[in-house]
Simulated scan of single mutants.
Amino acid sequence: MPADATTLVLVDDHQMVLHGLDAMLSHFADEVRIVGTATSLSEARGTVDQTRPDIVLCDVRVGRDSGLDFVAELQRTHPETKVVLLTVYDDEHYLFQALRVGARGYILKRIDGRELVAHLRRVNEGEVVIDPALAGRVALSAARISAGEYWPGAHLGLTQRESEVLALLVSGHSNKGVAAKLVVSEDTVKTHIRGLYRKLGVQDRAGAIAVALREGIFH
Rank of each mutant, 00 (worst) to 15 (best):
S185I: 03
G136Y: 07
W151N: 08
A143G: 15
L156F: 14
V128Y: 00
A139W: 03
A142P: 02
A142L: 14
A139H: 09
W151G: 10
R122E: 04
K190C: 06
V183L: 03
S146A: 13
V183Q: 11
D204I: 10
G177F: 04
R194S: 11
L182Y: 08
T159I: 03
K190L: 15
V189S: 10
A180S: 13
V128R: 09
D131F: 14
P132H: 07
R198V: 00
N124A: 15
L140K: 08
K181R: 13
V184E: 01
L166V: 12
A118W: 02
H173W: 02
A118N: 08
S146D: 08
L156M: 11
G177Q: 05
A180R: 15
D187W: 03
Q203N: 12
L200H: 12
H155G: 07
R198H: 03
V138F: 09
K199F: 11
V202W: 10
Y150G: 01
V202M: 06
A180L: 11
R194L: 03
T159G: 04
T191P: 04
R194P: 08
A118I: 01
L169G: 07
V202Q: 00
V138S: 01
R194K: 15
N175M: 07
A180Y: 03
E127I: 00
A118K: 11
G195R: 03
D187F: 00
V138D: 05
A142M: 11
N175F: 03
K176N: 13
S174Q: 03
Q203P: 05
H192A: 09
I193W: 06
L120I: 09
G136C: 02
L120T: 07
L140I: 13
T188D: 07
L200D: 06
V165W: 05
G153Y: 05
G148R: 08
G157C: 09
K181V: 04
E186G: 06
K199G: 02
G126K: 07
S141V: 02
S163A: 13
R198M: 05
Q160I: 05
A135D: 12
R137F: 10
E127V: 00
A118R: 10
A179D: 14
A143S: 14
K176F: 05
V129C: 01
I193A: 01
A167Q: 12
